[in-house]
């Protein structure tokens, strides 16, 4: 177990060294920084300070790792995962509980991170897509999504995979109807549903073969 101060993201203090994702995040941030400097030119850049609410000291368990953070009550779990912990697999979509792009597992059940305040997640097990892989080795559900070509643009895919994982933990061998119900909280604007349902079925077989 590692403990990290919430003031630093997963950037420089990341115990995993420079991951591919971390590298890209930092390159991206650098680019934005340059853009601002160039646009500001000679003029003084205006900084809008938002006075924070009283921050709460919370302990979040994400993918088995304990993080001690200071979070504002208004910060959603989605925001804290992405912006404070640098875990960007969980995607912001509608941010009002309608699309499922931000699906995470809370105590093993699929839930929307945009509708959960970070302070509410204290004392619960949070699992994100990052927790379903072993390093760069894809998990069973990811493997099935690749095999069945269950995506087009891929933006909803992290949420789809986590929702599928939640479904398969509750029902290891779901019927097509149970798959359709279990996956009904995740929208795919590319309309890859038929492939997604097939992938979930395949994932149930892969998980069984892997002895889970």
């Amino acid at each position: 177990m590692t403990e990290k101060d919430g003031k630093e993201g997963c950037g420089d203090g990341c115990p995993h060294g420079v991951s591919r994702r971390g590298f890209m995040t930092r390159v991206g941030a650098g680019t934005i920084g340059l853009g601002v400097a160039a646009a500001a030119g000679t003029a003084e850049a205006t900084v809008h300070e938002i006075p924070p609410g009283e921050p709460h000291r919370v302990t979040l368990t994400v993918n088995g790792t304990t993080h001690r953070l200071l979070v504002e009550p208004r910060e959603t779990l989605l925001y804290v995962l992405r912006e404070r912990l640098g875990m960007t697999a969980t995607k912001p979509g509608c941010e009002r509980g309608e699309c499922g792009a931000c699906t995470v597992l809370i105590d093993g059940a699929a839930r929307y991170a945009c509708l959960t305040l970070a302070v509410e997640a204290e004392g619960h097990e949070v699992t994100t897509l990052e927790g379903l892989t072993k390093g760069e080795e894809p998990g069973a559900v990811q493997r099935a999504f690749m095999d069945e070509d269950a995506l087009q643009c891929g933006y909803c895919t992290p949420g789809q995979i986590v929702a599928a994982e939640g479904l398969l933990r509750a029902r290891p061998d779901p019927t097509l109807e149970e798959i359709r119900t279990g996956m009904s909280g995740n929208l795919c604007r590319c309309g890859a549903y038929v492939h997604i349902f097939r992938a979930v079925k395949k994932a149930s077989v892969l998980r069984k073969d892997a002895g889970r």
């Binding site: 699929a110 929307y112 929702a163 479904l167 119900t181 279990g182 009904s184 909280g185």
Partner: peptide, 9 residues
């Protein structure tokens, strides 16, 4: 109502 993940909440 909604969908399964929503009803978990």
């Amino acid at each position: 109502v909604g969908a399964w993940p929503l009803r978990q909440r």
